[in-house]
Nucleic acid binder design. Structure first.
Lengths: 123, 123
DNA sequence: CTCCGATATGTTCATTCGGACATATCGTGT
DNA sequence: ACACGATATGTCCGAATGAACATATCGGAG
């Protein structure tokens, strides 16, 4: 339950085109696939069904007009999935944008948090 | 249809506490209330029902632990709503954060857009 | 030729969410 | 007393979403 992410930044969704966008959920899934080499393993790790993870991958690939994830069935490793160069680039850039955003808004976040803490405490 | 916002930044949601957060939809509603002086007018302008707009205001006020919007019924102006100091501060800061974020990620967005434009065009 | 593990899909059911209506309330003018 | 305009709530229904289950397929290993 990452209700309040450490940084204070909740969600950052970057829209590249009408159908191509990347947000925290998709990024985490891409990261999971990169690390586990499997859609189902990545999904399970995030507590979602394989079906849902697979659907997200579909939406991602179709939305971007080019595959971010490539999967294979059977074979030596009994199937699996991996990020394409595009997928890796998108993930890396997204993480970078998250970091820059967190830094850019840190000041405002601190001020607002102090403000609501005050109003709640007082009356 | 603001599918792809001019800036390229899609959604920015800032989480202050477990229940207090502000995103594009809420910010637009706050702005609408500030400008129209009415929850229903602001909602209508955004194409949502009064009920929904009112529900959002409730969630906002309860989530922050202090009211961002204060409303009144009857009276000289036949009721209306306005932002509290906290509401104004939250809205202003949010717009500022949006601007800083857009600036911070502009470079990455440009690169990614060029990349997907390429892949779609070629092959 | 069967087994295995992961992808690929379809179906069904429960829950959530929003839209559409329907009222009720309030407080100043007329 | 009544009308008006906006807030304040409740109910009901259809669409969308996701969880759960059930298969089907692929391709190398044994």
């Amino acid at each position: 339950m990452a209700g309040v992410p450490e940084t204070g930044l909740g969600h950052l969704r970057v829209t590249l085109t009408e159908t191509a966008y990347i947000g925290p959920g998709r990024a985490d899934l891409l990261e999971g696939i990169a690390e586990t080499g499997s859609i189902s393993a990545a999904g399970k790790r995030m507590g979602m069904s394989y079906k849902r993870a697979w659907s997200l991958v579909q939406a991602l690939n179709e939305g971007f007009g080019a595959p971010l994830v490539e999967a294979s069935r059977g074979g030596a490793a009994q199937g699996g999935a991996h990020l394409t160069d595009l997928g890796t680039e998108v993930l890396t850039r997204y993480r970078a944008m998250q970091a820059r955003t967190a830094e850019a808004i840190a000041g405002d976040v601190a001020v607002l948090r102090a403000l609501i803490a005050d109003m709640s405490g007082k009356k």
